[in-house]
Amino acid sequence: MGESGQSDAPLAEKIRLDKWLWQARFFKTRGLAASVVRSGHVRVNGNRAGKPAQMVGPGDVLTFTQASRVRVARILAPGTRRGPAPEAQALYDDLSPLPERADETPVSPNPRYEGKGRPTKKERRKLDLNAPGALD
C-alpha cells in the first residue's frame, strides 16, 4: 500500500493510451499515436478515446485504423519499453479481421493493352523474328 492508504497495484497495470500504442509498435512515434487518439480515431472497449492520456490496461480492446486497415487488439500487458518487434507483439492479441481479397490473381499496377506500352523482352524477340530478312 502507498502512503495514502490506497493500493499501488491498479496503477502499475495501467499505461497511457498513446504510450501503449507506440510501445506496441502500431505507430512510429508517440506524437503520431497521440494525434490519432486526439482526432477520435481510436476506440477503447467500443467507446471513442478522447485524449491520449486515457489509461488502458490488460483486457481492454482497442479498435483503430492503420493505413487502410482496421486493427483490433486486446491488450495483454502494459509494457515497459519500446523494444524489438517480437517483444511488442507479446503485448497484445491481434483480433483484426483478415483483409478481403477481391481476386486471387495478382493485378499489375500497369495493365498491358494490346499494342500499347513497352513490350517485354519476350515480345521483342517475337517481333524481331517477324521482321523482314530476320531468317535469311
Rank of each mutant, 00 (worst) to 15 (best):
V61N: 04
K116D: 12
V36Q: 12
A90S: 14
N130C: 05
L32N: 04
A90E: 13
V70P: 03
P97Q: 13
A102M: 01
Y113E: 02
K116G: 03
M1K: 11
A131V: 00
A90V: 03
V61E: 08
A67P: 00
N130Q: 15
K122N: 10
A90F: 09
G46D: 01
P58A: 03
D8T: 10
G46Y: 09
T105K: 11
P10V: 01
Q23A: 05
L127I: 15
D8Y: 12
A88N: 05
P86Y: 14
G5I: 00
A134F: 04
G46I: 00
D94F: 15
K51G: 01
G117E: 04
G50Y: 07
G133A: 13
L76Q: 13
G79P: 06
K126G: 12
G57N: 01
P106G: 06
M55Y: 06
R101A: 10
D103T: 06
E114W: 13
T120H: 14
N130T: 01
S7L: 07
T63V: 09
L21A: 05
D136A: 12
E13D: 06
G57Q: 08
R38Y: 11
P78V: 03
T63W: 08
N130D: 07
P52D: 03
L11T: 04
A88H: 12
P10W: 12
G31V: 03
A90N: 05
P132S: 09
K14W: 09
G5H: 08
E3T: 09
E13V: 01
A134L: 03
L98Q: 13
F27Y: 15
E104R: 13
V42Y: 09
P111R: 15
V42N: 06
D60N: 14
T80D: 02
R74K: 15
V70Y: 14
S35Y: 02
L62I: 04
V72R: 15
P119H: 14
V42I: 02
A73H: 10
A67Y: 14
P78A: 09
E3V: 04
T120P: 13
A24W: 07
R71H: 13
A24V: 01
F27I: 00
S35N: 12
R74M: 07
D18E: 08
G40H: 04
A24Q: 09
P78K: 09
Q54G: 04
T65I: 04
R43Q: 12
P58G: 01
A77Y: 15
K14Q: 15
S96M: 05
A131I: 00
R69Y: 15
G79T: 00
Q23D: 02
A85K: 07
S68P: 00
M1Y: 01
V42M: 03
L98Y: 05
D18S: 07
G40A: 06
N47D: 11
A53M: 02
G31L: 06
A33L: 02
L127M: 10
K14P: 02
E114N: 10
A134M: 07
E100A: 11
Y92Q: 02
P119I: 00
P84F: 10
R48Y: 05
